[in-house]
Amino acid sequence: MSRLDARWFIDIYERKVDMNPILLEIAKLDFNRVQSIHQEDLKYASRWWRSTRFSEKLSFARDRWMECFFWTMGMGFEPELSYFRRTATKIGVLITAIDDLYDVYGTLDELELFTEAVERWNVDALDQLPDYMKICFLGLHNSVNEMAFELLRDKGINVIQYLKKTWVDLCKSYILEARWYHTGYKPTLEEYLDNAWISIGGPLLLIHVYASETSPMIQDMESLEKHIDIIRCSSIIARLADDLGTSTV
Rank of each mutant, 00 (worst) to 15 (best):
S2C: 10
W8N: 01
N32F: 11
A211V: 13
Q219F: 07
L163N: 00
T248F: 14
C233H: 10
L224E: 07
C171A: 10
A238E: 13
R50N: 15
G92H: 07
L176I: 02
E110Q: 14
S199K: 07
A196I: 09
R153H: 04
I37H: 00
R232C: 09
T89R: 02
P21N: 04
A238W: 12
F84A: 15
L111Q: 03
S212Q: 10
L4F: 00
K164Q: 04
C233K: 11
E80T: 12
G106A: 15
M75E: 14
S46G: 10
Y174N: 03
L111E: 02
M1N: 08
D131N: 02
G139Q: 01
I207L: 13
R64Q: 12
N145F: 03
P187G: 07
S2I: 11
R86A: 12
R7A: 01
T166R: 06
S2R: 15
S2M: 14
R86S: 15
D41E: 04
A45N: 05
T89L: 03
S36C: 06
Y210S: 09
S143I: 05
E110F: 00
L126W: 05
W197C: 04
E225H: 13
F114R: 01
F77K: 08
N142E: 11
R62E: 11
R33E: 12
Q39Y: 05
M73I: 05
I135Y: 10
M73F: 00
K165S: 00
E146I: 15
A27Q: 14
L151Y: 08
S46M: 12
L126G: 02
L176F: 01
W65G: 15
A45I: 14
A97N: 02
R33K: 13
A27E: 15
G156S: 04
E80F: 13
L176Q: 07
A211C: 15
A238P: 06
D41R: 00
R239K: 09
H141T: 01
C233S: 07
T115F: 01
F149V: 02
